[in-house]
Nucleic acid binder design. Structure first.
Lengths: 256, 256
DNA sequence: TTTTCATTGCGTTATTATGACACAATGATA
DNA sequence: TATCATTGTGTCATAATAACGCAATGAAAA
């Protein structure tokens, strides 16, 4: 099926495949070069950016839909993913954008399930930046990482969704271990601290941070140190998966 | 419009009024006689109980839908209400219950938007028990309070929804003031403590509790004491609304 | 009237957690 | 070989927390 056929199919038959009025939008966080990043799509004809999103198949669990979307945009499986809020403004509709879209590919349409109001469930994902291969979807020209402090214009309420996701992430940081999903398998203490500082958007005391993190017992220090740094070499650490999972479930009273 | 007509209208025309596939379910918490209660409806023909729920009008914000449902079941306005989770199992459908329901009122039906899969958004409400007048809806025989530790059989995943709401409430207790919505306007310290103990399901030290709660500054002690108790009379307190609201927004680092 | 007793208000103390900071060790670069 | 940014480890004062003591209250029992 060629591109036009696929699009027409989606606009005029999509409601036979997907649930109406409900969508899923993903805020995909990555960490790179000491900066917190978010993966965005450039919506065709909207001239604005958008969160990776999609719809729920009629027999599909919502979490699975989010995983599917994540997999399509990043190539990643088995990702830490959770819903964080539902956005339901009655004005949430991409009618104008989608009509322009159809117009530009030479299709006149007054009606489509895609023009209707959508309630969207926000999902938050934490991924290993280095393992992601961004892939655009059929509504988008490109798929790129953006610094959290340098977000472009976005369609609809996507900026609000992003903000809520960030606040959610910040709040979680005090109760749950986070780094496992955002860092590579081994990392140094300064790297982990930078991650926390970036998410919380404030400086932390190096020594107190180390004491508290190690106090939780979720880290295992390796005998290996980082090579090629022009100063004392920091140790590498790994997460102790067993204790990490335990801390995830039990939560950890934790004040940074 | 009589009862039958109203029901048939709902089953066969409801989708013109409401969004398909989406519902809202409310976990309504009250506090009475030192026990945490939840308001449930007895679903006709299901023989089981259910959370008060409903649907979203096509042009209605979801929060407004939840408020509307709450108002209809309790008579209350301006209630503390928040979404806490979305439940989306593909098997979430009241098809069987609703078909029995229609059958019993003499209507044969193979198709109705009400038979389809529903994704439901869970809302949690905190209300003043003494002000509630429980009212059943057209799908229910009765509307009653249940002790949180003595919940009857419930339809679908409503038990899971209730559990999630309770966990959510417990988690909030450490960061946000709660009592204002659940207690009458004036109350004693032991009453407030009982509320906390009931929600958290564990004993708290009387003296430490008082120190911490007062430390937040959200309470104002009245000059009045409780009358007619066979021991030292406790003072009455009120919430300092200004500081209470402030604490709601800012959160309060708080460990019980 | 007096005594009893469960409960309250207000307090103390030991322990633990937290924030702020000092200092020697490291290892590539100058 | 000296320099220097950065790391590992430790200290100390302060704040928060848990555990508990004791006198005061006031209706009910004696």
């Amino acid at each position: 099926m060629d591109f036009h056929e696929e699009l027409k199919e989606h606009f005029f038959k999509g409601h036979e495949k997907y649930l109406r009025h409900i969508s899923v939008d993903c805020v995909i966080f990555g960490f790179c070069e000491n900066e917190l990043k978010v993966l965005l799509l450039k919506a065709k004809y909207a001239g604005k950016w958008a969160l990776p999103g999609g719809f729920i198949l009629k027999e599909e669990p919502m979490d699975t839909a989010a995983e599917r979307i994540l997999k399509e945009r990043t190539g990643l499986d088995n990702i830490y993913l959770q819903q964080f809020y539902v956005f339901s403004d009655p004005g949430r509709s991409t009618k104008k954008i989608n009509q322009t879209f159809l117009n530009n590919i030479g299709v006149k349409a007054d009606e489509s399930w895609m023009f209707e109001r959508f309630i969207t469930v926000g999902y938050s994902a934490l991924v290993d930046f280095t393992k992601v291969q961004p892939v655009a979807d059929i509504f988008s020209d490109s798929c790129e990482w953006f610094n959290i402090n340098d977000i472009p214009n976005m369609i609809l309420d996507h900026h609000q969704i992003l903000n809520k996701a960030l606040k959610n992430l910040q709040a979680q940081l005090n109760f749950q271990p986070i780094g496992y999903n955002l860092l590579s398998s081994k990392f140094t203490m300064p790297e982990l601290q930078k991650l926390y500082e970036t998410i919380l958007n404030r400086k932390l005391d190096r020594r107190n941070f180390q004491r508290k993190i190690l106090g939780t017992g979720i880290l295992r220090r390796l005998d290996e140190t980082k090579k090629g740094v022009a100063h004392k070499a920091p140790y590498y650490y790994k997460f102790d998966l067993r204790k990490y999972q335990k801390a995830l479930k039990a939560g950890m009273g934790f004040e940074l």
